[in-house]
Nucleic acid binder design. Structure first.
Length: 373
DNA sequence: AACTCGGGGTG
DNA sequence: CACCCAGAGTT
């Protein structure tokens, strides 16, 4: 992890007017980069090696609004199951959804599969330009730039949440984040070097993740603290400036836990689109925005002797949920659209956490793994 | 431009 | 608990 040859090269080739920020970031990256499953080492890059576009794409999609720690295990599992984009294209969509279960934002998995299918039709080769990548499903402005820079060595401006934080602090940008994006992009474009653009992007992301953190940034360890306007004024944590968020709406609903008596519970598959699209769940009502204490079993998706079994609350990023739980013994065939599944195996199904809690509320211990005695 | 979409890590 | 995370698609 010692500084490498290309560090000096990057310094020498720094654009006129470059204060040296890019060079210092690259040198810091050589010494302090995170070691991540989808990365090749900067040393290998110097030898002419490039990251596998498939692995870069897969990791970038998984990392959309998802933390590195959460992604690692899923990434390893995916590349083991499907080592190439052709292998992923050949897989049943259902298997892909199942492997994605637990990561969240399930439209990403649907787009991932659709994208793999398209790329396989192109002979398994991803487009090697930002514009070409941008046309594929699930690849937006950020991901197109990231793949172009990291996998294809294109000098693209890669702007994610980390980069926004680093840049707004470097320049003490007081404009709220939503309005400041064009300005941030322009600043990043000026910073991108002709050599090692992918490493610069990853350097800024690593800096944002380990030094220039949202809370309590470690400015004393920062390689560009001398260039940072916010360090000079003494309050880097103030950036980026955001507009205050609206209060979270409270959503109410009811969930129905039907138990067969042999450990099986009635489940169904959600619609492909919308919240938790394509996932398995306990039957529920839709959202009921207003408080209605009279939410009764009349709203149940099928007839049974429903008894109120409790209530659970859960705070999501975007709303708070209050769920009434109803429980009933049910025999016979599963109604249309529903199917029986063993409760203790539910953790292996694509079942949201809240629904697992709902089952636990109605039938304590139902979702615990059964252990042979 | 504003909403919607999840689960998890962090201070 | 509040905030945020290698954002994208829809309206």
């Amino acid at each position: 992890m010692a500084p490498l040859d290309q560090t000096r090269k990057a310094s020498r080739q720094a654009a006129p007017g470059d204060t040296g920020i890019a060079s210092r970031l690259l040198a810091w990256y050589d010494a302090h980069h995170r070691d991540l499953p989808w990365r090749i080492t900067p040393g290998a890059f110097a030898g002419g090696a490039r990251a596998d576009p498939y692995r870069v794409w897969l990791s970038e999609v998984m990392l959309q609004q998802t933390t590195v720690e959460a992604v690692k295990a899923y990434f390893r599992n995916f590349v083991e199951k499907w080592p190439t984009v052709e292998a992923l294209a050949a897989a049943p969509a259902e298997d892909v959804m199942k492997a994605w279960a637990g990561l969240g934002y399930y439209s990403r998995a649907r787009n991932l599969k659709a994208c793999a299918d398209l790329v396989a039709l192109r002979g398994g080769h991803f487009p090697d330009t930002e514009a070409g990548l941008r046309e594929l499903p699930g690849i937006g402005a950020y991901t197109a730039a990231a793949i172009a820079a990291i996998a294809f060595d294109r000098p693209a401006a890669v702007v994610d949440g980390n980069v926004e934080r680093v840049m707004t602090r470097l320049h003490s940008i007081e404009t709220p984040l939503s309005e400041a994006k064009p300005e941030i992009r322009a600043l990043v474009e000026k910073l991108v070097p002709q050599t090692r653009p992918g490493d610069l992007a990853q350097a800024m992301m690593d800096l944002g993740a380990t030094i220039c953190t949202p809370k309590r940034p470690r400015c004393m360890l920062c390689p560009v603290r001398e260039d940072c306007s916010a360090v000079l004024t003494g309050d880097p944590e103030r950036f980026p400036v955001r507009v205050p968020k609206d209060d979270k709406p409270l959503r109410k609903g009811a969930a129905f836990v039907a138990e067969r008596g042999d450990g099986a519970i009635l489940l169904r598959k959600r619609p492909e689109k919308g919240l938790l699209g394509g996932m398995t769940e306990v039957p529920t009502t839709g959202w009921t925005a207003r408080i209605d204490g009279a939410t009764t079993a009349d709203a149940a998706p099928f007839s049974a002797d429903w008894r109120r079994a409790g209530q659970i609350g859960h705070v999501f990023t975007h709303f708070a949920l209050e769920l009434e739980i109803f429980h009933a013994p049910v025999k016979g065939e599963a109604p249309d659209g529903h199917f029986w599944s063993l409760a203790h195996e539910i953790s292996g199904e694509a079942l949201p956490t809240v629904m697992k809690k709902a089952i636990e509320a109605a039938i304590p211990g139902a979702t615990k793994k059964q252990r042979p005695h």
